[in-house]
Design a protein around this nucleic acid. Sequence first.
DNA 1: GTGGTCTAGACCACG
DNA 2: GTGGTCTAGACCACA
Lengths: 122, 122, 122, 122
Amino acid sequence: MIIQIDVQSPEPIYEQLRNQIVFGIASGQLLPGESIPPIRRLAADLGINLHTVNKAYTMLCVEGYLVMDRRKGAVVSVSDGNGDSERKLTKALTLSAAEARCKGMELDAFLSLCKLNYEKVK
Amino acid sequence: MIIQIDVQSPEPIYEQLRNQIVFGIASGQLLPGESIPPIRRLAADLGINLHTVNKAYTMLCVEGYLVMDRRKGAVVSVSDGNGDSERKLTKALTLSAAEARCKGMELDAFLSLCKLNYEKVK
Amino acid sequence: MIIQIDVQSPEPIYEQLRNQIVFGIASGQLLPGESIPPIRRLAADLGINLHTVNKAYTMLCVEGYLVMDRRKGAVVSVSDGNGDSERKLTKALTLSAAEARCKGMELDAFLSLCKLNYEKVK
Amino acid sequence: MIIQIDVQSPEPIYEQLRNQIVFGIASGQLLPGESIPPIRRLAADLGINLHTVNKAYTMLCVEGYLVMDRRKGAVVSVSDGNGDSERKLTKALTLSAAEARCKGMELDAFLSLCKLNYEKVK
DNA sequence: GTGGTCTAGACCACG
DNA sequence: GTGGTCTAGACCACA
Protein backbone atom coordinates (compact mmCIF):
# COMPACT_ATOMS: atom_id res chain seq x y z
CA MET A 1 0.00 0.00 0.00
CA ILE A 2 1.31 3.39 -1.05
CA ILE A 3 1.21 6.35 1.28
CA GLN A 4 1.80 9.87 0.09
CA ILE A 5 2.61 12.66 2.52
CA ASP A 6 2.52 16.32 1.55
CA VAL A 7 4.63 18.19 4.06
CA GLN A 8 3.49 21.50 2.53
CA SER A 9 -0.18 20.84 3.23
CA PRO A 10 -1.89 22.76 6.02
CA GLU A 11 -3.35 19.41 7.06
CA PRO A 12 -1.13 17.96 9.78
CA ILE A 13 1.07 15.11 8.67
CA TYR A 14 -0.24 12.75 11.32
CA GLU A 15 -3.77 13.42 10.08
CA GLN A 16 -2.87 12.78 6.45
CA LEU A 17 -1.35 9.52 7.58
CA ARG A 18 -4.37 8.63 9.69
CA ASN A 19 -6.72 9.32 6.78
CA GLN A 20 -4.73 7.29 4.30
CA ILE A 21 -4.66 4.32 6.63
CA VAL A 22 -8.44 4.62 7.01
CA PHE A 23 -8.68 4.57 3.21
CA GLY A 24 -6.45 1.53 3.16
CA ILE A 25 -8.77 -0.30 5.53
CA ALA A 26 -11.91 0.86 3.74
CA SER A 27 -10.59 -0.26 0.37
CA GLY A 28 -9.50 -3.66 1.61
CA GLN A 29 -5.80 -3.03 1.09
CA LEU A 30 -5.38 -3.45 4.82
CA LEU A 31 -7.21 -6.41 6.30
CA PRO A 32 -8.26 -6.86 9.94
CA GLY A 33 -5.65 -8.87 11.81
CA GLU A 34 -2.90 -7.75 9.49
CA SER A 35 0.16 -6.05 10.95
CA ILE A 36 1.06 -2.61 9.72
CA PRO A 37 4.65 -1.35 9.53
CA PRO A 38 6.37 -0.55 12.83
CA ILE A 39 6.46 3.12 13.73
CA ARG A 40 10.15 3.56 13.12
CA ARG A 41 10.18 1.83 9.76
CA LEU A 42 7.19 3.73 8.42
CA ALA A 43 8.72 6.96 9.66
CA ALA A 44 11.95 6.16 7.87
CA ASP A 45 10.14 5.13 4.67
CA LEU A 46 8.09 8.33 4.63
CA GLY A 47 10.99 10.50 5.71
CA ILE A 48 9.13 11.84 8.71
CA ASN A 49 9.66 11.65 12.44
CA LEU A 50 8.68 8.61 14.46
CA HIS A 51 6.67 10.74 16.89
CA THR A 52 4.50 11.92 14.05
CA VAL A 53 3.77 8.36 12.99
CA ASN A 54 3.21 7.44 16.61
CA LYS A 55 0.58 10.15 16.97
CA ALA A 56 -1.30 8.86 13.94
CA TYR A 57 -1.18 5.28 15.26
CA THR A 58 -2.35 6.39 18.69
CA MET A 59 -5.31 8.23 17.13
CA LEU A 60 -6.21 5.16 15.11
CA CYS A 61 -6.07 3.04 18.28
CA VAL A 62 -8.40 5.37 20.13
CA GLU A 63 -10.78 5.31 17.17
CA GLY A 64 -10.67 1.52 17.07
CA TYR A 65 -8.99 1.14 13.68
CA LEU A 66 -5.85 -0.33 15.20
CA VAL A 67 -4.90 -2.27 18.28
CA MET A 68 -1.44 -2.48 19.77
CA ASP A 69 -0.50 -6.10 20.17
CA ARG A 70 2.34 -6.34 22.65
CA ARG A 71 3.91 -9.10 20.61
CA LYS A 72 3.23 -8.05 17.05
CA GLY A 73 3.13 -4.27 17.20
CA ALA A 74 0.25 -2.43 15.55
CA VAL A 75 -2.49 -4.56 14.03
CA VAL A 76 -5.52 -3.60 11.94
CA SER A 77 -8.80 -3.96 13.84
CA VAL A 78 -12.44 -3.26 13.16
CA SER A 79 -13.86 -2.58 16.59
CA ASP A 80 -15.73 0.62 17.23
CA GLY A 81 -13.49 2.13 19.87
CA ASN A 82 -16.12 4.37 21.39
CA GLY A 83 -19.24 5.97 19.95
CA ASP A 84 -17.37 9.12 19.00
CA SER A 85 -16.69 8.00 15.46
CA GLU A 86 -20.40 7.93 14.72
CA ARG A 87 -20.88 11.48 15.94
CA LYS A 88 -17.84 12.58 14.00
CA LEU A 89 -19.16 11.04 10.80
CA THR A 90 -22.55 12.67 11.23
CA LYS A 91 -20.96 16.03 11.88
CA ALA A 92 -18.82 15.78 8.76
CA LEU A 93 -21.79 14.77 6.62
CA THR A 94 -23.94 17.58 7.97
CA LEU A 95 -21.28 20.08 7.02
CA SER A 96 -20.86 18.55 3.57
CA ALA A 97 -24.61 18.63 3.04
CA ALA A 98 -24.78 22.28 4.08
CA GLU A 99 -22.00 23.24 1.69
CA ALA A 100 -23.67 21.30 -1.10
CA ARG A 101 -26.96 23.12 -0.51
CA CYS A 102 -25.20 26.48 -0.57
CA LYS A 103 -23.83 25.60 -3.98
CA GLY A 104 -27.40 24.95 -5.12
CA MET A 105 -27.09 21.19 -5.22
CA GLU A 106 -30.40 19.33 -5.07
CA LEU A 107 -30.87 16.17 -3.01
CA ASP A 108 -30.51 13.91 -6.05
CA ALA A 109 -27.28 15.52 -7.13
CA PHE A 110 -25.92 15.34 -3.61
CA LEU A 111 -26.78 11.67 -3.27
CA SER A 112 -25.18 10.93 -6.62
CA LEU A 113 -22.03 12.59 -5.43
CA CYS A 114 -22.14 10.58 -2.19
CA LYS A 115 -22.63 7.36 -4.12
CA LEU A 116 -19.79 8.22 -6.46
CA ASN A 117 -17.45 8.78 -3.56
CA TYR A 118 -18.56 5.64 -1.78
CA GLU A 119 -17.79 3.56 -4.84
CA LYS A 120 -14.56 5.39 -5.51
CA VAL A 121 -13.16 4.00 -2.26
CA LYS A 122 -13.56 0.61 -3.86
CA MET B 1 -29.97 33.41 13.78
CA ILE B 2 -28.31 31.91 16.82
CA ILE B 3 -24.61 31.19 16.86
CA GLN B 4 -23.07 28.96 19.50
CA ILE B 5 -19.32 28.98 20.11
CA ASP B 6 -17.58 26.32 22.17
CA VAL B 7 -14.24 27.67 23.32
CA GLN B 8 -13.35 24.22 24.61
CA SER B 9 -13.66 22.51 21.27
CA PRO B 10 -10.52 21.41 19.45
CA GLU B 11 -12.11 22.99 16.38
CA PRO B 12 -10.79 26.56 16.01
CA ILE B 13 -13.31 29.23 16.88
CA TYR B 14 -13.06 30.94 13.50
CA GLU B 15 -13.89 27.63 11.87
CA GLN B 16 -16.88 27.02 14.11
CA LEU B 17 -18.10 30.47 13.18
CA ARG B 18 -17.48 29.90 9.49
CA ASN B 19 -19.35 26.59 9.58
CA GLN B 20 -22.34 27.99 11.41
CA ILE B 21 -22.69 30.81 8.90
CA VAL B 22 -22.57 28.24 6.11
CA PHE B 23 -25.36 26.36 7.91
CA GLY B 24 -27.29 29.60 8.17
CA ILE B 25 -27.05 30.14 4.44
CA ALA B 26 -27.83 26.53 3.61
CA SER B 27 -30.89 26.51 5.82
CA GLY B 28 -32.25 29.77 4.45
CA GLN B 29 -31.83 31.69 7.69
CA LEU B 30 -29.40 33.92 5.84
CA LEU B 31 -30.54 35.02 2.39
CA PRO B 32 -28.38 36.23 -0.50
CA GLY B 33 -28.10 39.99 -0.42
CA GLU B 34 -28.72 40.13 3.29
CA SER B 35 -26.19 41.87 5.50
CA ILE B 36 -24.58 39.99 8.34
CA PRO B 37 -23.52 41.66 11.60
CA PRO B 38 -20.44 43.89 11.51
CA ILE B 39 -17.29 42.27 12.85
CA ARG B 40 -17.13 44.37 15.99
CA ARG B 41 -20.67 43.70 17.03
CA LEU B 42 -20.54 39.97 16.39
CA ALA B 43 -17.27 39.73 18.28
CA ALA B 44 -18.80 41.57 21.23
CA ASP B 45 -21.98 39.47 21.14
CA LEU B 46 -20.05 36.20 21.11
CA GLY B 47 -17.42 37.37 23.56
CA ILE B 48 -14.57 36.51 21.23
CA ASN B 49 -11.72 38.36 19.61
CA LEU B 50 -12.13 40.73 16.66
CA HIS B 51 -9.39 38.97 14.74
CA THR B 52 -11.21 35.69 15.10
CA VAL B 53 -14.41 36.99 13.53
CA ASN B 54 -12.42 38.75 10.86
CA LYS B 55 -10.65 35.52 9.96
CA ALA B 56 -13.96 33.70 9.56
CA TYR B 57 -15.40 36.46 7.36
CA THR B 58 -12.27 36.54 5.23
CA MET B 59 -12.49 32.78 4.77
CA LEU B 60 -16.13 33.04 3.74
CA CYS B 61 -15.26 35.78 1.24
CA VAL B 62 -12.54 33.68 -0.34
CA GLU B 63 -14.96 30.78 -0.60
CA GLY B 64 -17.61 33.01 -2.19
CA TYR B 65 -20.17 32.84 0.61
CA LEU B 66 -19.78 36.54 1.39
CA VAL B 67 -18.87 39.67 -0.49
CA MET B 68 -17.65 42.84 1.11
CA ASP B 69 -19.71 45.88 0.35
CA ARG B 70 -18.26 49.26 1.30
CA ARG B 71 -21.63 50.55 2.39
CA LYS B 72 -23.41 47.49 3.72
CA GLY B 73 -20.47 45.61 5.21
CA ALA B 74 -20.41 41.87 4.66
CA VAL B 75 -23.26 40.58 2.49
CA VAL B 76 -24.38 37.04 1.82
CA SER B 77 -23.58 35.86 -1.67
CA VAL B 78 -23.94 32.69 -3.68
CA SER B 79 -21.08 33.00 -6.13
CA ASP B 80 -18.76 30.10 -6.55
CA GLY B 81 -15.61 31.75 -5.28
CA ASN B 82 -13.04 29.51 -6.86
CA GLY B 83 -13.14 25.84 -7.70
CA ASP B 84 -11.56 24.88 -4.41
CA SER B 85 -14.85 24.37 -2.63
CA GLU B 86 -15.78 21.58 -5.03
CA ARG B 87 -12.51 19.78 -4.43
CA LYS B 88 -12.89 20.30 -0.70
CA LEU B 89 -16.41 18.86 -0.73
CA THR B 90 -15.30 15.81 -2.67
CA LYS B 91 -12.40 15.25 -0.33
CA ALA B 92 -14.65 15.44 2.72
CA LEU B 93 -17.17 13.04 1.21
CA THR B 94 -14.48 10.56 0.21
CA LEU B 95 -13.22 10.51 3.76
CA SER B 96 -16.71 10.12 5.18
CA ALA B 97 -17.39 7.28 2.76
CA ALA B 98 -14.18 5.55 3.78
CA GLU B 99 -15.00 5.82 7.45
CA ALA B 100 -18.50 4.51 6.80
CA ARG B 101 -17.10 1.51 4.91
CA CYS B 102 -14.71 0.78 7.78
CA LYS B 103 -17.68 0.68 10.10
CA GLY B 104 -19.26 -1.90 7.84
CA MET B 105 -21.86 0.43 6.39
CA GLU B 106 -23.34 -0.69 3.06
CA LEU B 107 -24.05 1.75 0.21
CA ASP B 108 -27.76 1.93 1.06
CA ALA B 109 -27.13 2.71 4.71
CA PHE B 110 -24.57 5.34 3.77
CA LEU B 111 -26.91 7.03 1.30
CA SER B 112 -29.69 7.01 3.88
CA LEU B 113 -27.40 8.74 6.30
CA CYS B 114 -26.42 11.28 3.64
CA LYS B 115 -30.05 11.94 2.82
CA LEU B 116 -30.90 12.32 6.48
CA ASN B 117 -28.20 14.90 6.94
CA TYR B 118 -29.15 16.75 3.78
CA GLU B 119 -32.71 17.10 4.96
CA LYS B 120 -31.65 17.95 8.49
CA VAL B 121 -30.11 21.17 7.20
CA LYS B 122 -33.61 22.14 6.20
CA MET C 1 -0.07 23.91 45.17
CA ILE C 2 3.18 22.02 45.46
CA ILE C 3 4.11 19.33 42.98
CA GLN C 4 6.96 16.94 43.60
CA ILE C 5 8.46 14.90 40.78
CA ASP C 6 10.79 11.98 41.34
CA VAL C 7 12.73 11.42 38.15
CA GLN C 8 14.22 8.24 39.62
CA SER C 9 10.86 6.58 40.15
CA PRO C 10 9.82 3.76 37.83
CA GLU C 11 6.46 5.53 37.63
CA PRO C 12 6.51 7.71 34.49
CA ILE C 13 6.87 11.42 35.18
CA TYR C 14 3.70 12.29 33.28
CA GLU C 15 1.80 9.84 35.46
CA GLN C 16 3.19 11.25 38.70
CA LEU C 17 2.13 14.66 37.48
CA ARG C 18 -1.31 13.42 36.47
CA ASN C 19 -1.84 11.80 39.86
CA GLN C 20 -0.75 14.84 41.81
CA ILE C 21 -3.12 17.06 39.88
CA VAL C 22 -5.92 14.59 40.62
CA PHE C 23 -4.99 14.86 44.31
CA GLY C 24 -5.03 18.62 44.00
CA ILE C 25 -8.57 18.54 42.61
CA ALA C 26 -9.75 15.96 45.14
CA SER C 27 -8.38 17.95 48.06
CA GLY C 28 -9.88 21.22 46.89
CA GLN C 29 -6.55 22.89 46.21
CA LEU C 30 -7.60 23.11 42.58
CA LEU C 31 -11.14 24.28 42.01
CA PRO C 32 -13.30 23.70 38.92
CA GLY C 33 -13.05 26.64 36.58
CA GLU C 34 -9.61 27.57 37.84
CA SER C 35 -6.75 27.80 35.36
CA ILE C 36 -3.71 25.67 35.91
CA PRO C 37 -0.20 26.73 34.87
CA PRO C 38 0.56 26.75 31.16
CA ILE C 39 2.47 23.74 29.90
CA ARG C 40 5.72 25.57 29.34
CA ARG C 41 5.76 27.32 32.67
CA LEU C 42 4.99 24.20 34.66
CA ALA C 43 7.64 22.33 32.70
CA ALA C 44 10.18 25.04 33.53
CA ASP C 45 9.17 25.14 37.19
CA LEU C 46 9.48 21.37 37.54
CA GLY C 47 12.62 21.17 35.43
CA ILE C 48 11.07 18.72 33.00
CA ASN C 49 10.24 18.80 29.33
CA LEU C 50 7.13 20.48 28.02
CA HIS C 51 6.11 17.37 26.10
CA THR C 52 5.99 15.44 29.34
CA VAL C 53 3.69 18.01 30.91
CA ASN C 54 1.65 18.07 27.73
CA LYS C 55 1.11 14.33 27.92
CA ALA C 56 -0.15 14.59 31.50
CA TYR C 57 -2.52 17.42 30.55
CA THR C 58 -3.79 15.50 27.55
CA MET C 59 -4.51 12.46 29.73
CA LEU C 60 -6.36 14.62 32.22
CA CYS C 61 -8.42 16.10 29.39
CA VAL C 62 -9.42 12.69 28.10
CA GLU C 63 -10.36 11.66 31.63
CA GLY C 64 -12.44 14.81 32.07
CA TYR C 65 -10.36 16.42 34.82
CA LEU C 66 -9.28 19.28 32.57
CA VAL C 67 -10.62 21.08 29.55
CA MET C 68 -8.58 23.09 27.12
CA ASP C 69 -10.06 26.55 26.81
CA ARG C 70 -8.78 28.15 23.63
CA ARG C 71 -8.58 31.48 25.37
CA LYS C 72 -7.41 30.59 28.85
CA GLY C 73 -5.33 27.47 28.37
CA ALA C 74 -5.98 24.46 30.59
CA VAL C 75 -8.83 24.75 33.09
CA VAL C 76 -9.94 22.43 35.88
CA SER C 77 -13.19 20.63 35.12
CA VAL C 78 -15.34 18.03 36.79
CA SER C 79 -17.09 16.33 33.89
CA ASP C 80 -16.87 12.59 33.52
CA GLY C 81 -15.06 12.39 30.22
CA ASN C 82 -16.23 8.92 29.34
CA GLY C 83 -17.23 5.95 31.46
CA ASP C 84 -13.70 4.57 31.49
CA SER C 85 -12.77 6.22 34.76
CA GLU C 86 -15.40 4.19 36.58
CA ARG C 87 -14.08 0.93 35.21
CA LYS C 88 -10.55 2.00 36.02
CA LEU C 89 -11.49 2.80 39.61
CA THR C 90 -13.24 -0.53 40.06
CA LYS C 91 -10.28 -2.39 38.63
CA ALA C 92 -7.87 -0.64 40.99
CA LEU C 93 -10.07 -1.32 44.00
CA THR C 94 -10.48 -4.98 43.11
CA LEU C 95 -6.73 -5.36 42.96
CA SER C 96 -6.26 -3.54 46.27
CA ALA C 97 -8.90 -5.72 47.89
CA ALA C 98 -7.23 -8.87 46.61
CA GLU C 99 -3.85 -7.79 47.95
CA ALA C 100 -5.40 -6.91 51.29
CA ARG C 101 -7.03 -10.34 51.54
CA CYS C 102 -3.73 -12.02 50.74
CA LYS C 103 -2.19 -10.17 53.65
CA GLY C 104 -4.92 -11.61 55.86
CA MET C 105 -6.83 -8.39 56.21
CA GLU C 106 -10.48 -8.82 57.24
CA LEU C 107 -13.28 -6.74 55.75
CA ASP C 108 -13.40 -4.38 58.71
CA ALA C 109 -9.69 -3.71 58.65
CA PHE C 110 -9.82 -3.13 54.90
CA LEU C 111 -12.70 -0.68 55.18
CA SER C 112 -10.91 1.16 57.97
CA LEU C 113 -7.90 1.53 55.73
CA CYS C 114 -10.12 2.75 52.89
CA LYS C 115 -11.78 5.28 55.17
CA LEU C 116 -8.43 6.45 56.46
CA ASN C 117 -7.19 7.08 52.96
CA TYR C 118 -10.38 8.79 51.89
CA GLU C 119 -10.09 11.23 54.76
CA LYS C 120 -6.38 11.68 54.25
CA VAL C 121 -7.09 13.27 50.89
CA LYS C 122 -8.89 15.98 52.85
CA MET D 1 -7.63 -21.89 37.90
CA ILE D 2 -8.14 -20.03 34.67
CA ILE D 3 -5.77 -17.29 33.57
CA GLN D 4 -6.70 -14.88 30.83
CA ILE D 5 -4.03 -12.79 29.11
CA ASP D 6 -4.89 -9.85 26.88
CA VAL D 7 -1.92 -9.11 24.65
CA GLN D 8 -3.65 -5.94 23.49
CA SER D 9 -3.85 -4.41 26.93
CA PRO D 10 -1.57 -1.50 27.81
CA GLU D 11 -0.92 -3.39 31.05
CA PRO D 12 2.26 -5.47 30.66
CA ILE D 13 1.63 -9.20 30.32
CA TYR D 14 3.85 -10.09 33.29
CA GLU D 15 1.80 -7.72 35.42
CA GLN D 16 -1.51 -9.18 34.26
CA LEU D 17 -0.15 -12.59 35.17
CA ARG D 18 1.10 -11.39 38.56
CA ASN D 19 -2.26 -9.80 39.34
CA GLN D 20 -4.26 -12.85 38.37
CA ILE D 21 -2.15 -15.06 40.58
CA VAL D 22 -2.72 -12.64 43.45
CA PHE D 23 -6.46 -12.92 42.75
CA GLY D 24 -6.12 -16.67 42.78
CA ILE D 25 -4.51 -16.59 46.21
CA ALA D 26 -6.94 -14.02 47.56
CA SER D 27 -9.95 -15.99 46.39
CA GLY D 28 -8.66 -19.29 47.78
CA GLN D 29 -8.22 -20.93 44.40
CA LEU D 30 -4.53 -21.15 45.21
CA LEU D 31 -3.72 -22.36 48.72
CA PRO D 32 -0.51 -21.79 50.69
CA GLY D 33 1.87 -24.70 50.18
CA GLU D 34 0.35 -25.54 46.84
CA SER D 35 2.64 -25.72 43.81
CA ILE D 36 1.92 -23.54 40.80
CA PRO D 37 2.71 -24.61 37.24
CA PRO D 38 6.35 -24.61 36.18
CA ILE D 39 7.41 -21.62 34.12
CA ARG D 40 7.78 -23.52 30.87
CA ARG D 41 4.40 -25.15 31.03
CA LEU D 42 2.54 -22.01 31.95
CA ALA D 43 4.31 -20.10 29.19
CA ALA D 44 3.34 -22.76 26.69
CA ASP D 45 -0.26 -22.91 27.93
CA LEU D 46 -0.69 -19.16 27.68
CA GLY D 47 1.25 -18.82 24.46
CA ILE D 48 3.60 -16.23 25.89
CA ASN D 49 7.32 -15.90 26.39
CA LEU D 50 9.27 -17.77 29.06
CA HIS D 51 10.91 -14.57 30.23
CA THR D 52 7.52 -13.01 30.78
CA VAL D 53 6.31 -15.77 33.09
CA ASN D 54 9.65 -15.76 34.85
CA LYS D 55 9.38 -12.04 35.48
CA ALA D 56 5.95 -12.44 37.04
CA TYR D 57 7.11 -15.29 39.28
CA THR D 58 10.16 -13.31 40.37
CA MET D 59 7.97 -10.35 41.24
CA LEU D 60 5.67 -12.57 43.29
CA CYS D 61 8.67 -14.03 45.13
CA VAL D 62 9.98 -10.60 46.02
CA GLU D 63 6.55 -9.64 47.27
CA GLY D 64 6.31 -12.80 49.35
CA TYR D 65 3.42 -14.42 47.49
CA LEU D 66 5.62 -17.25 46.26
CA VAL D 67 8.70 -19.09 47.48
CA MET D 68 11.00 -21.11 45.30
CA ASP D 69 11.42 -24.71 46.36
CA ARG D 70 14.19 -26.68 44.71
CA ARG D 71 12.08 -29.80 44.57
CA LYS D 72 8.55 -28.47 44.13
CA GLY D 73 9.26 -25.41 42.01
CA ALA D 74 7.27 -22.29 42.86
CA VAL D 75 5.02 -22.67 45.89
CA VAL D 76 2.30 -20.37 47.22
CA SER D 77 3.29 -18.61 50.41
CA VAL D 78 1.77 -16.05 52.72
CA SER D 79 4.87 -14.41 54.16
CA ASP D 80 5.07 -10.67 54.11
CA GLY D 81 8.05 -10.31 51.83
CA ASN D 82 9.17 -6.84 52.73
CA GLY D 83 7.18 -3.86 53.93
CA ASP D 84 6.86 -2.48 50.42
CA SER D 85 3.54 -4.15 49.78
CA GLU D 86 1.93 -2.19 52.59
CA ARG D 87 3.17 1.10 51.22
CA LYS D 88 2.09 0.07 47.76
CA LEU D 89 -1.41 -0.79 48.97
CA THR D 90 -1.76 2.52 50.77
CA LYS D 91 -0.59 4.42 47.74
CA ALA D 92 -3.09 2.66 45.49
CA LEU D 93 -5.94 3.28 47.92
CA THR D 94 -5.05 6.95 48.30
CA LEU D 95 -5.17 7.37 44.55
CA SER D 96 -8.48 5.53 44.30
CA ALA D 97 -9.91 7.67 47.08
CA ALA D 98 -8.77 10.84 45.33
CA GLU D 99 -10.34 9.77 42.05
CA ALA D 100 -13.56 8.88 43.84
CA ARG D 101 -13.67 12.30 45.50
CA CYS D 102 -13.13 14.00 42.15
CA LYS D 103 -16.13 12.13 40.82
CA GLY D 104 -18.15 13.53 43.71
CA MET D 105 -18.35 10.28 45.63
CA GLU D 106 -19.12 10.66 49.35
CA LEU D 107 -17.41 8.57 52.01
CA ASP D 108 -20.36 6.20 52.32
CA ALA D 109 -20.52 5.56 48.61
CA PHE D 110 -16.79 5.02 48.47
CA LEU D 111 -16.84 2.53 51.34
CA SER D 112 -19.74 0.67 49.75
CA LEU D 113 -17.71 0.36 46.58
CA CYS D 114 -14.71 -0.86 48.56
CA LYS D 115 -16.84 -3.42 50.37
CA LEU D 116 -18.36 -4.58 47.11
CA ASN D 117 -14.95 -5.15 45.63
CA TYR D 118 -13.66 -6.88 48.72
CA GLU D 119 -16.51 -9.35 48.63
CA LYS D 120 -16.27 -9.77 44.89
CA VAL D 121 -12.85 -11.35 45.33
CA LYS D 122 -14.61 -14.09 47.29
C1' DG E 1 1.23 34.19 25.14
C1' DT E 2 -1.26 29.89 24.61
C1' DG E 3 -1.24 25.13 22.86
C1' DG E 4 -0.21 22.30 18.44
C1' DT E 5 3.03 20.28 15.34
C1' DC E 6 7.34 18.51 13.97
C1' DT E 7 12.13 17.19 14.25
C1' DA E 8 16.36 14.67 16.05
C1' DG E 9 18.15 11.66 18.92
C1' DA E 10 18.59 8.99 23.44
C1' DC E 11 17.48 5.38 26.76
C1' DC E 12 14.39 1.96 28.68
C1' DA E 13 10.57 -1.62 29.23
C1' DC E 14 8.62 -5.43 27.20
C1' DG E 15 8.49 -9.85 25.03
C1' DG F 1 12.97 -5.61 17.62
C1' DT F 2 8.79 -3.49 19.28
C1' DG F 3 6.60 0.56 21.41
C1' DG F 4 7.08 3.87 25.56
C1' DT F 5 9.31 7.67 27.72
C1' DC F 6 11.99 11.73 27.91
C1' DT F 7 14.76 15.53 26.31
C1' DA F 8 15.99 19.83 23.56
C1' DG F 9 14.73 22.99 20.60
C1' DA F 10 12.15 24.96 16.46
C1' DC F 11 8.20 26.95 14.00
C1' DC F 12 3.31 27.77 13.48
C1' DA F 13 -1.81 28.42 14.46
C1' DC F 14 -4.91 30.57 17.36
C1' DA F 15 -6.91 34.23 20.05
